[in-house]
């Protein structure tokens, strides 16, 4: 039997179907960055330690460096850029920017994806739950406080928005 050294993978990325040849051992992260040119997913360690490559695979946040692209075949992937029109993601993006939760920004895409998953599943987490949820995403710049502040602000805002039936805005121009 001949060994297969190339596979064809088809992934729905941010709403668009993308098909390409890949190596069998290729990670989803590598596939996205080198074949689909999806550059908002970052590579910080390539072994699951840092969380910068976090994205949504079939509804679940995963570290894409730990997923073989073959496992993502026929599945759906969402990254930060793909979620540009999602109201919860928009609220988080605005909150991160206005709370100073972004310094170098390299951890930000993964951090936002993780935070969005948390708030989608658990709309009103306390600080400890936010920290727990973000603990797989390393940040070297901020010391995490402002990131937790940013997520907590969206959670609080969501709660009041639900009551008042309005859109969640967390910041007003000074």
């Amino acid at each position: 039997m001949e060994l297969q050294n190339e596979i064809t993978v088809s992934v729905r990325i941010n709403g668009t179907q993308f098909t390409a040849a890949a190596a069998p051992e290729e990670s989803l992260l590598e596939f996205l960055r080198t074949r689909a040119m999806v550059m908002d997913v970052k590579c910080g360690c390539n072994k699951g330690d840092c969380g910068t490559c976090t994205l949504i695979l079939d509804g679940q946040p995963v570290k894409s460096c730990l997923v073989l692209v073959a496992q993502a075949n026929s599945k759906e992937v969402w990254t930060v850029k793909g979620m540009a029109l999602d109201p919860l993601m928009q609220a988080l993006q605005e909150s991160f920017a206005t709370h100073g939760a972004i310094q170098c920004g390299f951890c930000t895409p993964g951090m936002l994806v993780t935070a969005r998953s948390l708030l989608a599943d658990c709309p009103q987490p306390d600080r400890a739950a936010i920290k727990e949820a973000l603990s797989g995403n390393l940040c070297r710049c901020t010391g995490y406080k402002k990131i937790v502040d940013a997520v907590a602000a969206v959670a609080a805002c969501q709660a009041s928005a639900r009551v008042q039936g309005g859109r969640c805005r967390v910041w007003k121009q000074q």
Binding site: M37, Q93, I102, G105, Q174
Partner: peptide
């Protein structure tokens, strides 16, 4: 002296900043 998002916060939040390895 104010609290103000820095100019690069927005593109970084949107994932559009092109870091060194993002460039081909």
């Amino acid at each position: 002296g104010k609290r103000r998002p820095k100019i690069d916060a927005w593109p970084k939040a949107k994932g559009t900043t092109i870091y060194a390895d993002d460039f081909t």
